[in-house]
Amino acid sequence: MPETRFGYLLPTRDQTVSGEHAPRRLVEHAVRAEALGYDSVWAGDSPITRQRADPLLVLAAVAQATRRVELGTAVLLPALRHPILLAHQLGTLDRLSGGRVIAGMGAGFPTEATQAQFTALGVDFATRGRRLEESIEAMRLLWSGEAVSFKGEHYAFEDVSIAPPPARPGGPPVWLAGGGPALRRVARIADGWLPYPPEHGVYAEEAGTILETARRPVTPALYATFCLDDDPERAREILRTSIERYYNAPLEFIASIQAMFAGTPEDAAAWLNGYVAAGARHIVVRFATDDHESALEEFAGRVRPLVDGETRS
């Protein structure tokens, strides 16, 4: 069985809700994650609905401060940007980092708050899925470095080239979020899959669907939230505080749609091994805590070895 890889989600949103606004500290977290053996570092995207530092600018700084970790967006909303500009930004970041970018993307979760963000930026929310697909198609053309043309329902251009081209031929791998009906899109156009289903069985079923229908190799990943504490009840309360502050919504609702764990490191590893058995191979970890330094170390020292042990057996 392939080794499980682990990524770390930078707390860009957590900084905003706490009023810290210290992007340099985010870079320090990334450097520490690399030193502890994490395989990737990620940044989320939401300029208005869930405000945070811009993910591509943060990752550009991380690219200069690190040497090994992959740099991912979890996840970027292409429909809010023109594909020529986004292809240029991602291509430059890939070149800057020496080919370490993973372009995690999504259409946008169907909530009133997300719709308001699209409206503020003058983008029809109902078209977000098709815009996502057109953007990916257009960016892959542009990442060739040649002059290309594209004509879609929402974007069109003729004889356009961008420079510098990405470090990797063809550009960064594109990972897509989503489950259910979105699986067809993942199987059709994605290089990776980054969902967060709260149940192992759902993950296994959807991963099987992608494996059977994908047109190219797809990396099965998982976006999961952890709050670690040797006292499970205390962990649950910390998780509640963090999640309700992050989303401005009840924990019970968010936990019904997202993979979340609160409890001891040993139980976290056992829970995570259920996803590994279901097919997950790259775990993007979000920590529900105010102390990311300790969380990074605790997960690396007490959770990951147990998951890796299961993977190697």
Score class of each variant (00 low, 15 high):
A60H: 09
L59K: 11
A63T: 00
L80F: 01
G98H: 05
A63S: 11
T119Y: 05
P110A: 07
L90H: 04
R68E: 05
T111H: 09
T66G: 02
L71P: 09
A74C: 15
T114C: 02
V69F: 07
Q64R: 14
G99D: 05
L96A: 06
T119K: 12
Q89S: 14
V75M: 08
P78S: 07
D94R: 00
F118M: 09
I102N: 09
S97Y: 08
I84S: 08
Q89G: 04
L96G: 05
S97Q: 12
R81K: 12
F109W: 15
L59G: 11
G106P: 13
F118A: 05
L86E: 01
L85N: 13
A107L: 12
R95M: 07
R100K: 08
A61Y: 02
I84V: 15
P83G: 10
R68T: 07
L93M: 14
G104W: 06
L90R: 04
L85V: 15
L121K: 02
L80D: 00
A60Y: 06
L59C: 11
L59Q: 08
D124S: 09
L71A: 06
A113M: 10
R81L: 04
H88P: 00
A61E: 12
A63C: 03
R68W: 00
R100A: 07
A65D: 01
A103C: 03
R95C: 03
H88W: 09
S97V: 04
L121C: 04
D124L: 10
R81A: 00
I102M: 11
T119I: 10
A116W: 05
G122C: 10
L121M: 15
A120F: 01
A113R: 14
A74Q: 09
A113W: 06
V101T: 09
V69W: 03
G91V: 05
L85E: 15
L56D: 02
A63R: 02
L57W: 08
F109N: 12
G98S: 07
Q64A: 15
G122L: 06
V123K: 03
F118E: 11
F118P: 10
F109D: 15
G72P: 03
G91N: 11
Q64T: 13
M105Y: 07
L76Q: 11
A87F: 06
A79W: 03
A113G: 13
A107Y: 10
G91F: 10
R81Y: 15
Q64D: 09
L86D: 02
D124N: 14
A116V: 02
H82W: 01
L86W: 01
G106M: 12
H82G: 14
R95L: 05
A87C: 12
V75P: 04
A74F: 11
L77P: 05
V69K: 08
G104I: 08
P110Y: 01
D124P: 10
A87T: 08
G91Q: 09
V101N: 12
A116H: 14
A60C: 05
